[in-house]
């Protein structure tokens, strides 16, 4: 392999210049701290560079780990609320005539959030959403009072005093998610909600191909993802309402 004898010195010079530039551009109040940190960083860089020079290991860009069809588990980070800020995974229900962006939403008094338009989601017994396979609802899918019992994807969520549950309907297409340069899309048409003795398809796109596919992002290196979709309810007691699903977490490929 061809080596460049001047490379270590050149790297030190560059890092030193960067450190000086950082000091020059920083606020007055934090200048001393930043300068110290920059000096430490530079010193560390020198050591690292020296070590690199000794071993002369070639540096290559890491290839994206999560690209193409992602088969495995989209583990769900539980949703949390801090004041009106919501993070992690959650669900919202848009009333007929509303929009996912502006609502109006159905307020869920059982929500743990101050903004009860958000119902937080927590991982189910499978840890999250599995692609390439189904997570069917149990039979029966409800208890005597209509609480949904499916608990693989997310833990059942109390909504209007009754728990709704989610599963992927085995009569549909197995869930699939594809990553392209960090962007997610896929087919979650089998995604189904169980609530109050009613079964509501919440797929994206819908099983008949209407609606839009889920969208999201994934860090190709870490698998940290965000996946969201909306799904219009057609028929049943919530005909015309729209479910908004937002999942966050980390993808783990199937073994």
């Amino acid at each position: 392999m061809k080596t460049h004898p001047h490379t270590p010195r050149l790297a030190v010079a560059l890092l030193g210049s960067l450190a000086l530039l950082t000091v020059a551009c920083s606020d007055d109040e934090s200048t001393s701290d930043t300068t110290a940190a920059a000096v430490e960083t530079t010193a560390a860089a020198v050591e690292t560079t020296a070590a690199a020079a000794e071993t002369t290991v070639p540096v290559t860009d890491a290839a994206p780990s999560f690209e193409g069809d992602l088969v495995g588990t989209f583990a769900i980070d539980a949703g949390t609320c801090d004041g009106t800020a919501v993070s992690g995974s959650y669900f919202q229900m848009v009333q007929p005539g509303g929009t996912p962006a502006d609502g109006p939403f159905i307020p869920n008094a059982d929500s743990a959030c101050a903004d009860t338009n958000y119902s937080l989601l927590a991982p189910g017994t499978d840890g999250g959403l599995i692609t390439g396979d189904f997570q069917a609802a149990p039979d029966p899918a409800f208890d005597a009072t209509g609480n949904g019992l499916a608990g693989g994807i997310v833990a059942p969520v109390t909504f209007f005093a009754v728990a709704f549950a989610a599963a992927t309907d085995p009569t549909g297409t197995a869930p699939s998610v594809t990553a392209t340069a960090g962007e997610l899309t896929g087919d979650l048409s089998a995604f189904t909600a169980y609530y109050g003795a009613g079964i509501f398809n919440q797929g994206a796109p819908k099983p008949d191909g209407t609606g839009t596919a889920p969208t999201g992002t994934i860090d190709p290196a870490t698998g940290v993802y965000m996946l969201e979709w909306t799904s219009l309810i057609v028929g049943g007691s919530f005909d015309g309402f729209t479910g908004v699903w937002h999942l966050e977490g980390t993808f783990t490929p199937a073994a």
């Binding site: 009072t145 209007f160 005093a161 009754v162 109050g196 009613g198 049943g236 005909d239």
Partner: peptide
Amino acid sequence: FSAQWPTIVGEFNPMIATMSD
């Protein structure tokens, strides 16, 4: 009312669905 509400949901839900469908 609160104690009965889950049952009411379970009863009303299918009825509304029947009307809607």
